[in-house]
């Protein structure tokens, strides 16, 4: 038994070593980002591995020098878009997946397959056409258009939530129907309350989309800096004419975006896992 214990200790030691090395490798880029966000000298490229001097002015200037790169405003824009997208997309996804999972109707299979196929198209292939449609209906350079498009895209990834609803026993619905509940009532009062993990998962993923998308948002917002979301604005800081002046501020801005996202992730990771695996685990 003693030798078993020793091998156990030995193998644990090896695992600890590997985990430590991996953690370092994984954290180096993050650490580098944080260090450079405090870098005192300007410029994206420095001759040394680490910055020579440190300052907090990169952070301060994000909030004080706002005539062109209006970080606080972009933060507000993104938050607003994210909140609305989160609410609308979550509702859409839940509605669609519930319909496909629970309601039986003509051409249900066809609808599902069409949705699946459409989801396979890389979204930005159609960006230009989407832009012109939004312009034609008068939503040019508006946050509403971002919310609409993010929500639509999210709604096509219904199958994860559908997988979750599939796992809820149908007997519950049947019992409620006998009690005289309509399908609408079943959905709102019975199914939704016990679907917390998938609601949180969907809300989380759709809330995060506006924070990380820089391509579509820049196609919609184009030259209107005041309406930018954070990702687009930060990306603009890296353009050739700006990168020397703004690179360190880009890093500072990126750190500030990452903090709330990290907290959300750490807080909700359990639901995230349950979501991705379609409810097959109750972690």
């Amino acid at each position: 038994m003693a030798s078993y214990k020793r091998t156990q200790q030995l193998s644990n030691g090896v695992v600890y070593a590997i985990l430590s090395i991996m953690s370092v490798v994984w954290l180096i880029p993050i650490a580098w980002l944080i260090l450079r966000s405090f870098q005192a000298e300007k410029g994206a490229w420095i001759t040394t591995v680490l910055p020579q001097g440190y300052t907090v002015s990169n952070y301060v200037r994000l909030f004080t020098e706002t005539t062109q790169f209006n970080y606080p405003r972009w933060f507000g824009n993104t938050l607003m878009v994210a909140v609305f997208t989160c609410v609308i997309a979550t509702l859409l996804v839940l509605m669609i997946s519930y319909t496909f999972s629970r309601l039986r109707f003509k051409s249900r299979k066809a609808f599902m397959n069409v949705g699946l196929i459409l989801n396979m198209f890389p979204g930005f292939m159609t960006m230009i056409a989407v832009y012109h449609i939004l312009k034609a209906i008068g939503l040019y350079q508006s946050h509403i258009s971002l919310i609409l498009v993010y929500s639509t895209t999210a709604s096509l990834s219904y199958f994860i939530a559908k997988g979750f609803f599939d796992t809820i026993p149908k007997a519950m619905d049947e019992a409620a129907t006998i009690d005289g509940a309509t399908r609408s009532q079943i959905f709102w009062r019975i199914t939704l309350p016990i679907s917390k993990p998938i609601v949180i998962y969907t809300a989380l993923t759709s809330f995060l989309a506006p924070w990380v998308d820089f391509i579509f948002a820049s196609v919609i917002m184009k030259d209107n800096y005041d309406k930018y979301t954070l990702a687009v604005g930060l990306y603009r800081m890296l353009e050739r004419e700006n990168i020397y002046e703004y690179f360190t501020r880009f890093c500072a801005g990126a750190v500030l975006v990452s903090i709330p996202i990290t907290l959300l992730f750490i807080f909700f990771q359990r639901y995230y896992v349950e979501g991705v695996t379609g409810g097959s685990t109750k972690g």
Binding site: G43, A44, W45, I46, T47, R240, I243, Y244, F247
Partner: peptide
Amino acid sequence: DDAVLTGG
């Protein structure tokens, strides 16, 4: 890129 020149 330009960043290397301006930095170095």
